[in-house]
Each structure stands twice: as structure tokens, then as C-alpha cells.
């Protein structure tokens, strides 16, 4: 655990040393703020004290932002060869993967923390369903974990950051849209499976304030699966090369 933390802290610092962290946070806040408060279908339009508009914007922005964060995680190390230096230290492949995962998650966490003023403002304006808000945040975090693990996997198999970025968008878009669209084209078991695989199904129910273990398991299992693939791809240097 200690090693994971050391790696995570280094990665987080490097986000803040480069402009990555600041740009991400500013753009994230600007976009979500715009759609929550200013655009046509904002909170004032709905006329209810709810953060639902914010959650549906964050649902999209995180889809694009997370691959931008994860793309350099392993691809850059593969390219510059620093992965060799890192893995010949007293750490395991898993500690490296989890450390990087944790760093991305912490940055997303910071970005989400900074949206708490939205919550407080809405709360000040009217009676708000606190449960639904916290569930919405939980949903965003679970979804971020899923995207981060996909992004880490994409970054682990290439030494080109652009390829990693596009690949994680490509994988992500299946969970975001394609499974959902396909599920309406199929009936029976296939339709159900596709509907279960769709991220929106699970995110919607969580952000409405219904935390079902089925949904949590869905997000966590994809996360574990993605991280396992990333770890496998990192350790494949041991088998073929």
C-alpha cells in the first residue's frame, strides 16, 4: 500500500507540475458550470432544486477528460523507457498500475470537490434531495474508475499517447452509447446483456438516488477487469517481446 501511495503522489504532483491538472480542472468547471447554470436547459429552466443537469454534463465531460489524463500514464513510460527504471525498483506491476489509477482518481476527486459550491448554491435556493446528490457524486466516481481503468489499459499497450487516447475513447464509446443503442435492436437475452453492459443504464439509476448493488458491481467489475488487462499487458514483457 505504501508503494502504491508513493507512486500515486508522484503522478499527482506531475499532473500539477505540468499544466494538465489546471487545464483539466478549469475546463471541467467551465463546461459543467456553463451547462448547469447558463445554458438553455439549466437548473433555472427546470425550476427544481436538483443537480441533475450537472450530473448529465459531467457524464459526458469525464468521458473525454479521463482518456486525456490516462493516455500518458504508461504510454510515456513505455516510450521513454522509464518503465524499466520503475519496474526494476522494489515494486510489483500491480503497485505501479494501482498507484497510477489512484493518482487519476484523486485528480478527478479534486475536480469533483470543486463543484461542491454548485451543490451548496442549489441547496440555498430550495429544498434539495441530499441523497440524490451524494448518489450522483458516487455515480460519477464509480464511472470515473471505470474509464480510468480502460484508459490505463489502452495506455499500457502502446507507446504512443495519441493511440492510447483514441483507443480508450473507442472502448469507452461502446459502454457510453453503442451497447445502449444496440440493446434496443435486440430482444431476449442478447438485448438484456447489451442493456446491462451499457453504462448509462447504471449511471442513470444511481444518479436518480437509487444505489443498487447490481450497479455498483457493474462499475467495479469493469474497473477490476480493465486494471487486470493493464497489469497483464505490463507483465507480458516477461513472456514475449
Amino acid at each position: 500500500m505504501n508503494k502504491i501511495w508513493i507512486i500515486a503522489v508522484r503522478e499527482l504532483k506531475s499532473f500539477f507540475d505540468s499544466l494538465t491538472a489546471y487545464i483539466l480542472i478549469v475546463v471541467f468547471l467551465a463546461l459543467s458550470g456553463f451547462f448547469t447554470w447558463i445554458s438553455g436547459s439549466d437548473i433555472f429552466f427546470i425550476g427544481q432544486a436538483t443537480l441533475q443537469p450537472f450530473f448529465s454534463v459531467a457524464y459526458w465531460t469525464l468521458f473525454f477528460f479521463i482518456p486525456a489524463l490516462t493516455m500518458r500514464m504508461l504510454a510515456e513510460e513505455n516510450k521513454s523507457g522509464t518503465i524499466e527504471l520503475l519496474l526494476t525498483k522494489a515494486v510489483t506491476d500491480w503497485q505501479v498500475i494501482l498507484g497510477k489509477f489512484l493518482a487519476c482518481l484523486m485528480l478527478i476527486g479534486i475536480a469533483l470537490l470543486l463543484t461542491l459550491p454548485y451543490y451548496i448554491s442549489v441547496w440555498a435556493m430550495g429544498p434539495i434531495d441530499h441523497g440524490a446528490v451524494w448518489c450522483g457524486y458516487l455515480g460519477l466516481i464509480l464511472m470515473s474508475m471505470t474509464y480510468i481503468s480502460i484508459g490505463l489499459f489502452a495506455s499500457s499497450i502502446t507507446s504512443n499517447q495519441i493511440v492510447a487516447f483514441l483507443l480508450s475513447l473507442f472502448i469507452g464509446v461502446f459502454f457510453l452509447i453503442i451497447f445502449n443503442v444496440l440493446s434496443s435492436d435486440f430482444t431476449g437475452t442478447i438485448g438484456e446483456i447489451l442493456s446491462y453492459m451499457s453504462l448509462s443504464t447504471h449511471f442513470d439509476s444511481i444518479s436518480r438516488g437509487v444505489v443498487d448493488s447490481k450497479d455498483v458491481i457493474f462499475f467495479l467489475s469493469i474497473t477490476v477487469f480493465g486494471l487486470t488487462l493493464a497489469e497483464t499487458s505490463l507483465s507480458k514483457r516477461n513472456i514475449v517481446d
Binding site: R10, D17, S80, T82, L85
Partner: peptide, 8 residues
Amino acid sequence: NNPLYYDM
């Protein structure tokens, strides 16, 4: 090739 983290 002495790989290092150039940004640190």
C-alpha cells in the same frame, strides 16, 4: 539509455 523523468 538512462531513462529518467524529465519533468521532476
